[in-house]
Design a binder for these strands. Structure first.
Lengths: 226, 226
DNA sequence: TTTGACAACGAACAGATGTTCCGATTATAC
DNA sequence: GTATAATCGGAACATCTGTTCGTTGTCAAA
């Protein structure tokens, strides 16, 4: 496109809020392209679509759009563009619900497809997406885990894993007792493990590492009352 | 050792429609990542998130997911992934966050505008929007409310109101003691009120209706651990 | 005319990212 | 067991793709 060859491109650029026609077209193209492909265009895609002959010019305009708050960009991220919408719909991350958690029955198997479609919304600001890997939701039945401050009916979020760090609240099977429990994991010297209730007024349980089969780590609790 | 007591994830793979747990987790990660960033993860992002040690393995699983029709991929396109599933992006209700809740200080005033723009996401399926009228979020400080199964750091959702029904867990001020407490409301004959801890192993408090200044009803608890 | 902001161009660079190939390992079927 | 398919690992490779830098062109205001 020969600059100035047509006279349609005229406006006051003194207003720091406004954008040029080219920038508006760029924004609209990004929106359309994203809609059509489900991923954003690359800088070169934009260059070709708008008949621009250098990537740097596209980058320049993208900078302007970002400075105006109309666009978000991931740094050095391929196709990391997203158009900022006026109503930023806050989406709730979902985790799969696997069933119930009780003292007497094994943890539901994530492989089990019987409730494969059931999901639970979790608060995204408390549980950002990157912390939800391998996390599943379970509904607690019974008050056996009351000393972990978890009551009957609570939804607990558990990351399925076989290891734990000191201080984690773990979901574990006591092999000998064949019981499932929810306690704070406090390994001690000599292979002993102290299982400390979250409610510090209650007594800890001492067992051995061999008797402890760690199945997961609790990452959150959701409770509705009243 | 008892077979199956130490569950290692196994399933039948003869069904060409089904996917493995790995693949399902990959799909869920892509979905969450895309939701959070507004663009898809790279193969290396996926590798790191799932604890896989090679990009080729990620590509292999992506091929499977694409063959199952669960994923679309742009060829040789950076972050060119899009999940096909019709997960209808669930909106997260927001409640205003007013401050902290402790035994010794009054409830924050909703009129106070000091944190007027701070909000907390709540799970919409547990707390539908119509139940969130006059509900505000408070962060608990201290373990004074441990007998209501609420710990330091928990986010509690409280509906501000001056009345309560039997069985509600209320936020109330004890006038004479000038303390704030979180207990189950159990009015009894003759103007007495029994305040029952949610943890039934603990002793109730008996007081009078005159001494009780109901400020709100707890409708939920959100807790992050680990 | 001069000046400065805005816009445009081209080339090269560096980093991000998908792809491919080959071998090793593990689970499931027979 | 043995065979087969599924899964995993490492490394190199080829491209995408964003970034940077210097230069040039346009236009409105002083």
């Amino acid at each position: 496109m020969i600059p100035g060859s047509d006279q349609r491109r005229r406006r006051s650029r003194r207003n720091p809020e406004s954008i040029s026609l080219r920038q508006r077209e760029m924004l609209e193209f990004i929106e359309r392209y994203s809609q059509a492909h489900q991923y954003a265009p690359s800088i070169r895609d934009i260059r070709d679509a708008l008949g621009i002959s250098s990537t740097s010019l596209v980058a320049y305009h993208l900078d302007v759009l970002e400075a105006r708050g109309l666009l978000r960009r991931g740094e050095r991220t391929s196709r990391g563009l997203s158009v900022v919408t006026t109503t930023p719909a806050i989406h709730a991350p979902q985790v799969r619900w696997l069933g119930t958690l009780t003292a007497g029955t094994p943890l539901p198997d994530p492989e089990d497809t019987s409730h494969s479609d059931t999901t639970v919304s979790v608060p995204g600001d408390l549980f950002p997406a990157e912390r939800l890997q391998s996390v599943y939701a379970l509904t607690v039945r019974g008050n056996s885990m009351i000393d972990a401050l978890v009551a009957d009916g609570d939804t607990v979020l558990v990351r399925y894993q076989q290891t734990a760090d000191r201080g984690d609240i773990i979901v574990a099977r006591l092999r000998h007792e064949n019981a499932y429990t929810l306690k704070r994991y406090e390994p001690e010297a000599g292979g002993a493990v102290r299982l400390q209730p979250a409610n510090t007024t209650m007594e800890p349980i001492i067992t051995t590492a061999e008797n402890l089969d760690i199945q997961g780590v609790m990452v959150g609790v959701l409770r509705r009352t009243g």
